[in-house]
Design a protein around this nucleic acid. Structure first.
Lengths: 192, 192
DNA sequence: CGATTTACATACAGCCTGTATGTTTTTGAC
DNA sequence: GTCAAAAACATACAGGCTGTATGTAAATCG
């Protein structure tokens, strides 16, 4: 049984990413040792350091996978209603759905900023979810003008906090309602 | 020259906390080694492990100091106007002022949740800043009802994000404006 | 089919963390 | 004041982890 090099690399990388993801979620980045990861992946540390520059690079790969998965889930579920408000509400719902994946909030919202740095993390996923949000806000609030950027940033943070609260066991409905009220209030207020 | 035990302990603890704070801000928790901390503090690792259970306990002490400092700064600057809206706006401004201390956003908002866990971090400072925010919102939005909790949580996250953006070099005014618009929008919308 | 590159596995050096043990200083009672 | 006990450190040690260097087998390619 012989595998092509392409296959070997792909399978090993994926096994390491999967094992790393599981352990990073379970115990956090700092408490997860590379011997443990490679054992779970069924390879040796040699393979790990052949495919990734260091432990952090493996973590970055895990985070990039997660961010991509979130972006695709939102993309797929983007009920592109032409009503801007409905589009935004649907997008928020899709985001909460996507963030329900086991440990995803911990990985993307807690560990990644600390391990990879704030700017690196922002560069990875902000360009995904936050750009969508900005576009939605621009459509719903044409009067926002120079405040579009700050509002996008603040609401994005609110979405993240809601996702964390929901994964922590909070009811989802009140948070979706609160988001809707925030958006409607913005529309009301800026329209004057 | 002989110091009382109370003095010795107080001075050593403070030296460790100060040195730890500086290095944690400069290089992050994970990249800061205890030999470095004790060297900067002018003691040995024996003193560190005599006064703190482990490295994380020292970090926790640093975080508790920071959270306390923030709470006191807000308390001191709480221009208790009787107009609820003005009180909230002033509180937000005081929060941004307090968070301008070197590295404070990194410590409190990035590292602490990852190192101490989300719930432990929330328990340390949420009871301070978030309670104030909840009270302010309750006064300004008596119609909030069951949505008071989620709204407090979401706006708290927005405040945090604003503080991070400001420390990262963003203009402060647009963020304060955005916060004001969010609050006013809420008031407008819930009043119907 | 032979040479080179790729994909690993193994071995090693250095550092760090937490603990155990030893030493000095303070405290408190007589 | 002195002596025992406890507190406040300092030193020494064991174990584990990270990253690198080196060695080997499999795949690619001319």
């Amino acid at each position: 049984m012989s595998r092509s090099n392409r296959e070997r690399t792909e399978q090993t990388r994926q096994a390491l990413i999967d094992a790393g993801r599981r352990l990073f979620v379970e115990k956090g980045y700092a408490e997860t040792a590379t011997p443990e990861i490679v054992a779970a992946a069924g390879v040796t540390r040699g393979a790990l350091y052949h495919h990734f520059e260091d432990k952090r690079a493996l973590f970055r790969a895990v985070i990039e996978c997660e961010a991509k998965a979130v972006a695709e889930a939102i993309e797929a579920h983007s009920a592109s209603c032409d009503a801007p408000r409905a589009t935004l509400i649907a997008g928020a719902s899709a985001y909460f759905d996507a963030m329900r994946a086991e440990g995803r909030t911990r990985l993307l919202l807690i560990e990644a900023p600390a391990v990879l740095g704030l700017s690196a993390t922002a560069a990875i996923d902000a360009e995904n979810a936050e750009a969508t949000l900005r576009a939605g806000l621009a459509a719903m609030l044409p009067e926002a003008g120079t405040m579009l950027e700050p509002l996008t940033s603040l609401l994005s943070a609110a979405f993240d906090r809601a996702a964390i609260a929901i994964e922590a066991g909070a009811e989802r409905r009140p948070y979706e309602q609160a988001i809707a009220v925030l958006l409607d209030g913005l529309a009301d207020h800026l329209r004057r």
